[in-house]
Design a protein around this nucleic acid. Sequence first.
DNA 1: AGACGTTCTTAGATCGTTCTAGTGACAATA
DNA 2: TATTGTCACTAGAACGATCTAAGAACGTCT
Lengths: 344, 344
Amino acid sequence: MTEQQRRTTLIDVAHAAGVSRALVSIVMRGAPGASESSRQKVLQAAQDLGYRPDSRARLLRSSRTRLLGLSFSSSQPFHTEIVDAAYAKASAKGYEIALSAVANGRPESRAVEALLDVGSEALLLIAPTLSTQELTRYAGQVPMVSLLRDDVGDRVDSVSSDNYAGIRMAVDHLTSLGHRRIVHVDGGTAVSADQRRAAFSAEMLSHGLAPVTVHGGPNEEDGLKAGRLLQSDMPTAIIAFNDRSALGIIESLRAAGLQVPFDVSVLGYDDSQFARLSYVQLSSVSQDAALLAAAAVDRAVDRIEGTQPPSHVVRTPHLVVRNTTASPRFQQSAEAAALLPTKV
Amino acid sequence: MTEQQRRTTLIDVAHAAGVSRALVSIVMRGAPGASESSRQKVLQAAQDLGYRPDSRARLLRSSRTRLLGLSFSSSQPFHTEIVDAAYAKASAKGYEIALSAVANGRPESRAVEALLDVGSEALLLIAPTLSTQELTRYAGQVPMVSLLRDDVGDRVDSVSSDNYAGIRMAVDHLTSLGHRRIVHVDGGTAVSADQRRAAFSAEMLSHGLAPVTVHGGPNEEDGLKAGRLLQSDMPTAIIAFNDRSALGIIESLRAAGLQVPFDVSVLGYDDSQFARLSYVQLSSVSQDAALLAAAAVDRAVDRIEGTQPPSHVVRTPHLVVRNTTASPRFQQSAEAAALLPTKV
DNA sequence: AGACGTTCTTAGATCGTTCTAGTGACAATA
DNA sequence: TATTGTCACTAGAACGATCTAAGAACGTCT
């Protein structure tokens, strides 16, 4: 048979079980008000017919889809780590996740509208690039939670990681290792890049150090280019905008015959899969994707089920020290020198 | 106002424009049967009220969602390249894409059912791991297209890349460079791994060479481990299961002080983003994600809109030679030797 | 026996669309 | 003038679920 068989509906099940539609509905959604015997009868019939409730019809009537819309950027592996964690958390709370990717030629607004069309009860956006105005407009239709970005106005929830704290940890870590010439390869126009750049400047100044920032971006090639630029005047430590950039930077150092961390220390950001690869072992500032995602799902569900106002959750990241950061060479010799009596 | 405003519906627009629901419906879906003047009136009213049709209701009635379900594995960057291309193609054909990820703790069946619940008219599965039986069962409900895997029974469409041809190209390329000791680091239990392993054996034998295969897997760590195993008896060329594995292999060679491609040639598979990174420049067998995705979307739409039977499309991959393959050293000296008069 | 309270069950309205089968109006044809 | 045809428009029934309100059935208490 080539033709697609008609979908089995409540009515079919009701017929088979010899009861009314309404009773089947009650049983299917586990509502109270059905005797154990008829419950069994109905479940059996549903099972036999392979019945699956039609979520469109269900939603149309009840305006509940138990669906959370999640938009992410397909080119950012770190985003997919958040996606994974969000799935787990949502499913634990009895929600499904509808995914929509932001890709080349597919702006965030398209992604958002696709998610709304499909019936999402709340929207989670990873590092949204929409203007606060646009976000606010969408937030009128459905609760919205922004991940990794917190300047989203007061109608939109946000769950983000404290970029200032993260950069502070990074700088503290490196200075405590003895580094003084530290460069930040920034994220260019990426979300959070401004905050991290500002945080870097502030933190370096507070250590009495010169904050040198070079232009970078969110991926390997950006890091590679920035690394080449630094060739002529190499610092002893580099704080990258993220792990991918850090990989590019490390590669440029390798090409220049420099060893990490012996000659130069490199610190990433995100603590993504890359960082954990056994041959990379990148020291990195972890935003903990899983916790971030879980918090965002919690927020979304709270907003859907309660009447709480939007809130802004900021998590403090933590530092994961692996094998790409160490004391600078000159520092070691300087320390050695310090052990000697000072000859004026 | 904290409360969520009620959705604007056809009725609201009809009121505002002073016409009937039905006419608004006609205008909104661009159907013939409305005068230009009232068309304008309705569009204006819809615009003013910010009306967006409710796809659930629309679908419920018309059983058309113009939605294609696409499942992918969140941990495979190559899959997200396909996702990107599928979005572009689908949107060109007037379809939206519903995404569902296969992740840790989220089996493919969950992903598939989520896509069905949301109203997908056809399903595209990237490298499905479901049994042929299960696939066939789902295919009874909705057209299904398998990507990158072709042994899916005759009820399911498939769009795949010819693994035999791909491996043949790989082996031919390396042998023509002069390699004779070529090892395949396989994909373990991954989809397509069997075919590539078999193809490798067949092709090597047809060249009169010994087919040596070592156990690997689909990611960097797998490649790394396999590379270490090879240390004791290093071939002159390695064909990896995919690019990620190739990266791990290269890393293991680097660690052992071997240079690619000077000491050992390494060939990847997929021609993914990784391969194209300027500091990697991996030679690789390209399956051309964009074309594969486009073909799969075409198939799905054909199945939805026509009554064609399932078919199996097999595309021939092509080789992209970059900087990780070259003639082996000993071969060069052998060639040099060949130039000399043979001393018996 | 009748009134009453539970518990189980059902009819019918409803959600926001699309679709079928009309109704009117107006021009063209006989 | 009556008939036919076209075109713009509309009323009302779907679609497959949920939900409300009300009807059976049954036991318990006066």
